[in-house]
Amino acid sequence: MTSYDAADLIPLEGFTPLQIDEKTPISKKIQYACGLNAFKGWLNVDFFDDALIWNFTHFGGVPRNVAENVYKLNILDRHPFPDNYFDYAFCEDFVEHIQQKDAILFLFEVYRTLKPGGILRLSTPGLDGVMNVHFNKPNYESILENQDSAYTRWGHVHFFTHESLKTMASYIGYREYHPVSYGESLHKELEHLETRAEQNEYKINLYSELTK
């Protein structure tokens, strides 16, 4: 786990996440469910759910980079942003934690708030990778054991394939779907954003860019 010096931490007692209001500077680039990984020059948003609070507790406080740069937002509700606003959006390792019906709503709200031609870059464990890594020995005992390592332990509930994600995106209205590689993009703003190199090494994740 990442460690922080005391000077880099804000006491957890009394900490309140930043809230989005009419005074919030809204970048043209947004990162959803950013966790501890806030990007400079982007609008970083997160649930501030139990998983993130667990990290704060173990650190002994809230990292200043999070406290000062991440806004609390329920991204499974209507997003407080205008239509056709963002140029770029990024989301790493989030959609596998939500039900398929919630993913439809999330992808729609991202679509609504992207400008025409705007791009969402997604990184998520893919079903092909999960099956290859966790369920490549199809016997009863192995499947039970790997249900924990693939699903329960990490709060994972649903895995996409490129085909299923493309189907969902096209019905929502995205006009282009491009499978891409870890850290690589035709758009400079979307290069080298992923942080989970180990998932790329084991070929678990799929990476894609969806264009409005």
Rank of each mutant, 00 (worst) to 15 (best):
Asn205Gln: 02
Thr195Cys: 07
Pro125His: 01
Asn55Leu: 09
Glu189Trp: 04
Glu92Tyr: 00
Ala150Phe: 05
Lys137Arg: 14
Tyr177Ala: 10
Glu176Ile: 05
Asp128Glu: 13
Gly35Pro: 12
Asp93Ser: 14
Glu198Asp: 15
Glu176Met: 10
Ser149Gly: 01
Ala197Asp: 08
Tyr71Glu: 01
Met131Tyr: 08
Trp54Pro: 06
Asn139Glu: 15
Ala103Trp: 03
Gly126Pro: 03
Arg78Ser: 15
Asn139Ala: 10
His192Val: 11
Asp5Met: 01
Phe108Gly: 07
Lys166Leu: 08
Ser149Tyr: 07
His178Cys: 09
Glu209Cys: 07
Phe56Pro: 09
His156Gln: 03
Tyr71Ala: 07
Gln19Glu: 15
Thr16Cys: 12
Lys101Pro: 03
Asp77Thr: 13
Thr124Gln: 02
Gly173Gln: 07
Val62Asp: 01
Ile204Gly: 00
Gly41Asp: 12
Tyr85Glu: 10
His156Tyr: 01
Gln99Asp: 13
Asp102Val: 02
Leu36Cys: 06
Val45Lys: 01
Phe159Gly: 00
Pro82Ala: 10
Ala33Ile: 02
Asp8Gln: 15
Ala197Ser: 14
Pro17Gln: 05
Leu193His: 01
Leu165Gly: 04
Gly126Phe: 02
Leu76Phe: 07
Pro116Glu: 13
Val157Trp: 05
Glu145Gln: 13
Glu209His: 05
Glu176Trp: 06
Phe94His: 09
Gly41Ala: 11
Asp5Glu: 14
Gln99Ser: 12
Asp77Ser: 14
Gly41Asn: 14
Asn37Lys: 09
Tyr174Gly: 05
